[in-house]
């Protein structure tokens, strides 16, 4: 029983990290109606940037976010303007090709600069833990979860409490209508892509501390992130959060209770069950209505 409880707590904590990584992906889809299959590569890029910054500046990996998040934000805007904005027709299909090409390009560059060897961010708290009852919680998961909560809270504040957030939500609701009322959707899209990449940087630092990664690590990551936003409802922030928690908690409990082999299967049973009842995902319609 203790083990199941421990797995559930771990699932919630790591679920928060996946929620953060998936939030950028779902935001980008919501605003631009593009499927960014390069998002996993952007998370890995964020992890490498933090790795390089922490090693060269001798600072804590979490502190590197002060540098990497703005850098990734700006890079995201540039990528959106150069590669995504020119897609005028059949955006959803073409965006898959373009963002996959981006992912391959990022993987190649990372392989060139950092080699294909696995690496991992180091910090004192990656193996330190504290007891809660009969089990121990690792600091890095708690810190990661706190970071995710903070960033997601900021994202919600920006979306629901600022004029620019209203522009983003209007664009998510109806891109053409937003243009008609004078919203510069190109600017909104570029900023949204930048925000998506900045969250990828934040997710990347926790991913990089908890997991050994190399330039090819994005393939596994993107498949999980896409599944999360499908369950949560494409374009829904809170859907991404809930779905990430469902995925990680169900997988972790299944892994310890039954077998790791069945962990993915149980999650996909949940996914299929939800999609049969709500094809738009957990929060698909509701969030589109509200945003």
């Amino acid at each position: 029983m203790t083990l199941v409880l421990e797995a559930a707590v771990l699932g919630v904590l790591t679920g928060g990290v996946y929620a953060l990584m998936a939030s950028g992906l779902t935001l980008i889809f919501g605003v631009m109606r593009i499927i960014n299959v390069g998002h996993g590569a952007l998370v890995v890029l964020g992890a490498y940037l933090s790795f390089a910054a922490s090693r060269s500046l001798h600072i804590d990996p979490f502190l590197t976010l002060v540098i990497t998040m703005p850098v990734m934000f700006l890079l995201g805007m540039v990528l959106q303007i150069v590669f995504i904005r020119p897609l005028k027709t059949d955006r959803e299909a073409l965006s898959v090709l373009v963002t996959y090409a981006l992912a391959l390009g990022i993987e190649g560059l990372l392989g060139y600069f950092f080699t294909a060897n696995y690496t991992q961010l180091q910090a004192w708290y990656d193996t330190a833990s504290f007891p809660i009852g009969s089990f121990r919680i690792t600091y890095v998961y708690v810190f990661g979860f706190a970071l995710c909560l903070a960033i997601l809270a900021v994202m919600f504040l920006v979306l629901y409490r600022t004029t620019f957030g209203a522009s983003i939500r209007a664009t998510m609701l109806n891109r053409t209508a937003a243009q008609l009322i004078g919203i510069d959707v190109d600017r909104v899209s570029a900023v949204a892509f930048g925000i998506g990449m900045a969250t990828a940087a934040a997710g990347g630092v926790v991913f990089g501390i908890t997991t050994a990664f190399n330039p090819g690590s994005h393939y596994d990551l993107i498949s999980r992130l896409l599944t999360i936003i499908v369950l949560g409802g494409l374009g829904s922030l809170r859907g991404a959060i809930v779905a990430a928690l469902i995925m990680l908690v169900s997988e972790d409990i299944t892994a310890v209770l039954i077998s790791p082999v069945w962990a993915n299967f149980v999650f996909f049973v949940i996914l299929v069950g939800v999609l049969l009842i709500r094809p738009q995902g957990l929060y698909g319609v509701r969030v589109r209505d509200r945003l």
Binding site: L3, L248, E251, A255, V256, S259, P260, V261
Partner: peptide, 19 residues
Amino acid sequence: KVYPAETTDFTPIALAVAN
């Protein structure tokens, strides 16, 4: 326990081993 080669999060399995 046998786990899929595609597994990326090993912590639950490691927890079970530790347990």
